[in-house]
Structures are given as structure tokens and as C-alpha cells.
Design a protein around this nucleic acid. Structure first.
Lengths: 118, 118
DNA sequence: TTTATTGCTATAAAAATTATAGTAGCAAAA
DNA sequence: TTTTGCTACTATAATTTTTATAGCAATAAA
């Protein structure tokens, strides 16, 4: 089988070479899982997310929120059209199917800190 | 609490704002989980990995293999110093602790294809 | 009146990824 | 015997992603 004949998986108009890369295409951005991790506990406003993730730039946060929304993983709700704005982000039902993955990713981070530190 | 006072987690000389970002720092490269996914089943040579991942460039594959090695997740074994070379990559014991995460990432990709396609 | 908050966007620089081509020593095919 | 291919990569440059820094408009508090 030639390289060009490698079977590609298609989802949401994008192509992936395997099931793992499909998942990573949706949650693999540097900050996407961190966003999802915080939204797991509760709905958060833009400014609340920013406080939870002080090291991410606003541009990146905006872009990743948009990507997550486009992939149907989170909802964006605007409560007032005039300033002060109130925008809330929450997991969709589809996004909630990621819960076990996000939790195990967070737990592995804790596990590493406890067992492999220095 | 000021932004600058946000508690940072330290591991392997790098700093992360939360446990999820620590994990993603190690497996969050665009192709790292795909590499790990293939090594989960068995040890593979460089050329075998390349065949499994035809859409990744060799430079990126090399760089990500090096990063995974530096983080202690995979082993690199050279069998002959003169050409033809034989280089094998395998999971370390530490890398194997990621098994449930990598598997759930791959399974979620399959799940999405089965239940949310078109 | 100055400062802060809201949820972002504009511009430019840095970092990550991709595209393309090339290396050396050996083996098989033409 | 010349061409082609295999091994595990590296070099250079282009593109894409992420970061850094600053700024917006409306409102409210100091």
C-alpha cells in the first residue's frame, strides 16, 4: 500500500491518520484541555477563565475557545449585548463525553508530581 | 492574589499553571500521543513509525521522538553503529503509566466516528 | 478625573510544524 | 554496472501556531 493510499479518518471536514490524532485534533491545543478541565467543574465567564489561566495570552485563549466552540465541545452564551458584557462558557453534552479523559489527564499530572518529583 | 503569585507546578525544569497543563506539556505535541499509541502495542523502528504515520514530516517525527525521550517516556536503542542502522523505540516504565490515557484518547476517537459522524 | 472592569481584537515577534531536498553506507534490480 | 532503494536521520526555508504587547468602547467605582 502506498503512502497516498493510507486510510484517512474524516470528521468535521478534517482528516486524521488515526483515531488518536482525531482526538488530539480536538483537544490537543496547548491550552484546550486546561480550558475543558476548568469547565468540567462549572460554567465560567471569560474573565474567570482568564484568572484560572494567568499564563495564557488573551489572544490564544480567545482562539482556543473559538476552536472548541466550532468543534461543538463548548457553548458560548452572551447575556448582555451592551457593556458590561457577560459571556459564559460551558461544556456541551458532546463535550461532557470527554470528562473521563480530561480527568485522567489532570490526575496523571498530580500522580507525576507526587511520584516522580526530583 | 496577584497574577504573578499564581502557584506554579514544577517538573523537569519546566513550570505549569495546573496539573492538566503539566500532562499536556509532555504529551500535547501534535503527534506525541500518536507515537505513544503505536508504541503501546510494540517496540517499533524509526521506519516502522514513519509508515504508521505517513502524514508527519521526518523532522517533526525526529523532534517529537527526542522530546519524548528527554521527558523519559520512551527509550531509544541503537543496534548497529554502522549502516544499515537499526534504531528501536519503546515505552519506558514511566511512559507505560500513560497507557490508560492514551487508550482512552484513541477510544474516544473511535467513539466519535461511530456516534457523531455526519 | 483617573482608574478599573467587561470581552475581546490588532499588530508584530517567537516558536512549532511542514515542505523539500540531501547525507552515507550498503544491497538488490535492471 | 548504473540505477534505485533502504537506513535513520539533518539542513534550509516556508508556513502555521502561540506569545507579547498594546488597544478598544462602554460602564462604574474611587
Amino acid at each position: 500500500m502506498k503512502e497516498s493510499e493510507h486510510k484517512m479518518l474524516k470528521f468535521n471536514g478534517k482528516e486524521y491518520p488515526c483515531c488518536a490524532s482525531l482526538t488530539m485534533g480536538m483537544i490537543g491545543g496547548k491550552w484546550k484541555t486546561v480550558i475543558l478541565f476548568h469547565l468540567l467543574k462549572k460554567t465560567l465567564r471569560y474573565s474567570e477563565l482568564r484568572k484560572e489561566m494567568p499564563t495564557v495570552t488573551e489572544r490564544t485563549l480567545s482562539l482556543q475557545l473559538k476552536a472548541l466552540e466550532e468543534d461543538g465541545l463548548i457553548n458560548r452564551k452572551v447575556y448582555t449585548s451592551k457593556p458590561p458584557l457577560k459571556v459564559e462558557y460551558s461544556l456541551t453534552d458532546f463535550g461532557k463525553t470527554l470528562t473521563p479523559i480530561i480527568e485522567s489527564i489532570a490526575n496523571w499530572g498530580d500522580f507525576v508530581l507526587e511520584n516522580y518529583s526530583d
